[in-house]
């Protein structure tokens, strides 16, 4: 059996009348891994997914999914993968069960198995009660869960999820994260695009950060955050006149960093411990209104690699399928 891995070398997509949406990316996603593909809108995430799922032919580079070439063996790739694309494209006039029946028939699942498999998937995504209702009446979360069930009908070994939780409430998001985690524990390789830092941080074994069609950083969330470094401590003095004195004390612990308008911050050297800082402030009789330790986030990684914050870093130009 071929490995359920995803590989790409120099994968690129240049649209005829548009930008170079994906600009030569290399990927290696191991079997059973959850790979988070993180980037702002328009960065090239969806175009990459469309190429890897064979919906768009690349203009350069190569890709293999489940051991099959994405250009020459498209049908085999499609048989091995499941995909829930960015838009949970469902027919509002069909019921959840109608969708599952259609999807299974198109995948050639034998009639005798269809009903049982539909029930099993409906239970798995928590839609048993709504199975015979028209999808037009589903909430966003229900549509996403049905979308996931549809991607799983033929028991794929690799799953592509393109921004699966965009627009969902926190409860629906958490439920979907649980399900993705269960799938990965069953050995399914998951390629997940997201613009949510928290999602990549919580779910992904490894994260690739894409910007302007290029991967600017890749690694485990911990390694990426560790790479850019040290935490910052921010102190807001109770008396604004004491900002200078607070800054003098904090300077003993690290170099100045960007802070809120009322605060003083330093990127601390050595261990991320607050106790010595608190003791030093107390020794100088400085009263503190707020004291916070900021651990590095993936947004800090994005900022460090691109000079911009991920939040609000949307591309100005519209990129096809993004």
């Amino acid at each position: 059996m071929r490995p359920n891995s995803i590989e790409a070398e120099g994968l690129a997509k240049q649209f005829r009348k548009g930008p170079r949406a994906v600009d030569g990316i290399d990927l290696h996603v191991s079997p059973g891994e959850i790979y988070g593909f993180l980037g702002p809108n328009g960065a090239g995430k969806s175009t990459t997914v469309h190429m890897l799922t064979t919906l768009l032919p690349p203009t350069a580079g190569t890709g293999r999914v489940a051991g099959y070439d994405i250009v020459r063996e498209g049908a085999r790739v499609r048989a091995a993968i499941g995909a829930a694309l960015q838009e949970a494209a469902l027919d509002p006039l069909l019921t959840g069960r109608d969708h599952l029946r259609l999807q299974m028939a198109l995948h050639g699942i034998p009639r005798r198995e269809r009903s049982e498999r539909a029930d099993e998937l409906l239970v798995r995504v928590g839609l048993t009660g709504a199975a015979d209702r028209k999808v037009g009446g589903y909430s966003g979360g229900m549509k996403r869960r049905l979308d996931l069930a549809l991607a799983l009908v033929h028991r794929p070994r690799i799953l592509f999820l393109d921004e699966p939780t965009t627009g969902l409430d926190p409860q629906s998001r958490a439920a979907l994260w649980d399900e993705v985690g269960r799938l990965a524990s069953d050995g399914v390789t998951v390629f997940l695009t997201t613009q949510y830092l928290e999602e990549a941080d919580v779910l992904a074994d490894r994260v690739g950060i894409i910007d302007h069609g290029r991967i600017v950083a890749e690694g485990t969330p911990a390694a990426l955050k560790g790479e850019i470094g040290r935490p910052t401590v921010e102190v807001v003095p109770a008396d604004p006149d004491q900002r200078g004195a607070v800054a003098d004390v904090l300077a003993r612990f690290g170099e100045p960093s960007q802070a809120s308008p009322d605060g003083v911050a330093v990127r601390i050297d050595g261990e991320a411990e607050l106790a010595p800082i608190v003791r030093a402030l107390d020794a100088e009789d400085l009263h503190v209104a707020q004291l916070q330790l900021h651990a590095p986030t993936l947004d800090d990684v994005f900022l460090a690699k691109t000079g911009r914050s991920l939040e609000g870093a949307e591309e100005p130009e519209a990129v096809a399928a993004e």
Binding site: T53, T54, L55, A75, R78, A79, I81, A83, L85, A89, L90, D91, Q103, L106, H107, G108, L150
Partner: peptide
């Protein structure tokens, strides 16, 4: 929805 259909055989 057309893309969904395209992803099937």
């Amino acid at each position: 929805f057309f893309n969904r259909l395209q992803l099937t055989p």
